[in-house]
């Protein structure tokens, strides 16, 4: 499978919780901006907790759709590692940008 197709498929999976994730990231940026770096550790664990909750709901309610990705050779592990890594990367980038304005 070519890399571009793989990226498209991984993004299709990531779209399941991208809207929720962006709302959480936005809230974290706002709270960090208002409260300063002292709030960072709480916000980090809040982000981790909401990611875990999102992953649980996707596993429960979208489990049939895993077969779409299996049929392209993508395992659950590959889907989750790439998606969660990208999501955390995005979180850190947004936090870094916010810190520049503190």
């Amino acid at each position: 499978m070519d890399l571009w197709k793989k990226i498209r498929l991984l993004f299709a999976f990531h779209r399941y919780f991208l809207p929720t994730s962006l709302i959480i990231d936005g809230a974290c940026m706002y709270l960090l901006y208002r409260n300063g770096m002292g709030a960072y550790s709480v916000l980090f664990w809040f982000k981790v907790g909401t990611l875990a909750a999102s992953a649980y709901f996707i596993n429960e309610y979208k489990r049939h759709e895993y077969y779409y990705f299996f049929n392209f050779g993508l395992s659950k592990k590959a889907l989750w590692i790439s998606t969660l890594s990208f999501d955390m990367f995005l979180f850190f980038i947004l936090i870094f940008i916010t810190v520049q304005f503190l």
Partner: peptide
Amino acid sequence: YKQPHLLGYVPQHNFIPKSMTLRRIFRE
């Protein structure tokens, strides 16, 4: 399943993400 050109599987339940356009489903 990790060799997609070897084996495809249509399960008994619907499995393609509902948000996909038909063009994209066919193109992939």
